[in-house]
Computed example of a mutant assay.
Amino acid sequence: MVELLYGSGGVAEGLKPSPAPLGLLDPPTMVATQQDRTPWDDVPGLEEQQRRHLARIYRWGVLWRKPGEGETPVTERYRLEHGGEVEADGNCLFTALSAAMGGKVGARELRRRAVARFVEDYERDDGVGRRAMDEAIGHLYSPDLKAGWGVHVVQELKFLAKKADRLGLDAAIRELVDLGLQRETAAESIYKERCMPVDDCQSWAKYMSISGSPEDEFQIITLQYTEEGLLTVDENRDGRAAAFGDDIAIRSLATEFKRQVYVVQAHGADAMVEEEHCVFFLPHNPRGHICEPPIFLFMKGTGWCGAGADHYEPLLATPILPTSQEKAAVVL
């Protein structure tokens, strides 16, 4: 996962690697209670090393210090508990965030506010910031297929098709098939020629507005490639595919609510990380001041996607009595 970082003055600098993981402390007093049962024992799909570290966080809490200069220091400690599973669709980020916030704002409204905040911030940026943002979005959704194969086995290009144009697109594809082209090759050609690529801020805003509902203006077309060439064409003919919430959307929501959003990643043995680092916290900071406590989301890395799954679930943060840094499981 990568996070979109902003420099001073709110100017976008593009995608950079996420900050170094915030690791777990290991107070000696934790050992005596290691066998005690916690709610994490009932969460399905976790490996033992993940469960052990999450139980430790539950018992000893997360110590959060409100960032900011010249302000009265604020230190709070939270117990983190799994907030339940959410449907594994493109809306999972917004559904999980809604649950983590106590259901005060619905998932569809969170998606709408993420897009609106992004557009407002983009319009306030100068030319350098806008170009950097456009370039970052292009790397995410319209990557250069001549590069990147040392990191990715499969790369995707995202396009937007207007629902009103679907019949015309189908007719154009049939014409090419009648001329002897294979169906997927014909579809690739027509979608590239007639649909909108997701490669800048304006197209990202249209893309991220898609929730897979009948009210959507656009449908998502996904072309998947391997280094050898076209792999599949996902035409999304039923229009149910939603735009997966990304780091840009998380950052926009952090800014909208003036709160940090921490994505807590729990990786299994397949992620090839040392056990003491299998759980770590990735911060998404708002532009401007932080006025409210943080929000926590859970990303459970298991199976082949262990090093970068993008399925989010809510974490419920319960305030508990503050303690010293040495007695907290994690210090943020």
Score class of each variant (00 low, 15 high):
Met30Glu: 15
Gly129Ile: 05
Leu315Asn: 11
Val151Pro: 13
Ala171Ile: 15
Leu5Cys: 10
Leu157Phe: 02
Pro44Arg: 13
Arg124Met: 09
Ser8Asn: 14
Gly68Gln: 04
Asp238Pro: 02
Phe281Trp: 10
Val330Asn: 02
Trp64Cys: 01
Gly168Thr: 12
Asp89Tyr: 01
Asp270Met: 15
Tyr191His: 11
Pro214Leu: 05
Lys163Glu: 09
Asp89Ala: 03
Glu109Ser: 03
Ala187Lys: 03
Glu109Arg: 07
Glu228Ala: 15
Thr318Arg: 08
Glu275Leu: 06
Pro39Val: 05
Asp247Cys: 13
Ala329Gly: 12
Leu253Lys: 04
Phe94Gly: 00
Glu193Met: 15
Cys278Trp: 05
Ala172Arg: 13
Cys92Lys: 00
Cys195Ala: 11
Asp234Trp: 04
Leu80His: 00
Phe281Pro: 01
Thr222Leu: 09
Phe280Cys: 04
Lys16Pro: 02
Leu145Pro: 07
Ile290Pro: 02
Leu80Val: 04
Ala266Tyr: 00
Trp149Lys: 02
Arg112Pro: 01
Lys104Phe: 08
Leu169Ser: 09
Gly180Glu: 05
His82Trp: 08
Glu275Phe: 06
Gly301Tyr: 04
Gly180Asn: 08
Gly84Val: 05
Phe159Met: 02
Ala328Pro: 05
Ser209Pro: 02
Ser252Cys: 12
Val119Gln: 06
Leu145Cys: 10
Gly7Leu: 06
Ala12Thr: 05
Cys92Ser: 03
Glu123Pro: 07
Thr185Asn: 13
Trp64Glu: 02
Ala254Val: 13
Phe296Asn: 04
Val105Pro: 00
Val115Trp: 01
Val151His: 12
Ser252Pro: 08
Arg112His: 05
Leu145Trp: 08
Gly212Ile: 03
Ile173Lys: 11
Asp165Thr: 11
Thr29Asp: 12
Arg52Glu: 10
Gly7Thr: 03
Ala269Gln: 13
Gly180Ile: 02
Leu97Phe: 00
Ser18Phe: 12
